[in-house]
Simulated scan of single mutants.
Amino acid sequence: MNFTKVITVIVLLFVSVFTFAQGGKKLDKIIKRDYQIIECTIAKMSDKTVEYSLPGETMQIALDVSQIARIDFASGRSQTFDVSAGTATSDNTGQVIAAAEMKPNTIAVLPVPYVNSGTMESSEEMAKFAQNDLYNKLLDKSANLFPLTVQDLRVTNSLLHKAGIDYKNIDETPIEDLQKILGVDNVIAAKVSFTITEGSTASTYNSGNAKVSDNNKKVKTSDISTTTASNQTYYNYMVYFDMYKNGTKIYSQTRKPFLNIKDSWMDSITYLLKRSPIYVKK
Rank of each mutant, 00 (worst) to 15 (best):
265 W>V: 07
22 Q>A: 02
8 T>L: 14
169 N>K: 07
57 E>F: 02
3 F>E: 15
63 L>F: 01
227 T>R: 12
228 T>G: 00
198 E>T: 15
254 T>S: 11
84 S>E: 15
240 Y>H: 09
55 P>M: 07
280 V>Y: 00
147 P>D: 07
186 N>L: 04
99 A>F: 02
86 G>E: 11
265 W>C: 04
186 N>V: 07
190 A>E: 12
58 T>P: 02
149 T>C: 04
261 I>D: 14
271 Y>Q: 10
184 V>F: 10
193 S>Q: 09
277 P>Y: 04
62 A>L: 12
222 S>E: 15
93 T>C: 04
95 Q>K: 13
217 K>S: 01
51 E>L: 08
49 T>L: 12
203 S>I: 13
48 K>S: 08
51 E>S: 09
268 S>C: 11
153 L>R: 13
3 F>P: 01
107 I>P: 03
224 I>T: 12
270 T>N: 14
218 K>S: 04
154 R>C: 01
24 G>C: 13
190 A>G: 06
29 K>E: 14
271 Y>G: 01
194 F>R: 03
165 I>D: 04
233 T>D: 04
244 Y>M: 06
278 I>W: 05
282 K>V: 11
91 D>L: 09
220 K>F: 05
126 M>K: 11
170 I>R: 03
265 W>N: 05
254 T>H: 04
28 D>R: 10
133 D>C: 00
16 S>I: 14
152 D>Y: 00
39 E>S: 09
198 E>H: 10
57 E>G: 02
185 D>M: 09
265 W>H: 05
157 N>I: 08
211 K>T: 15
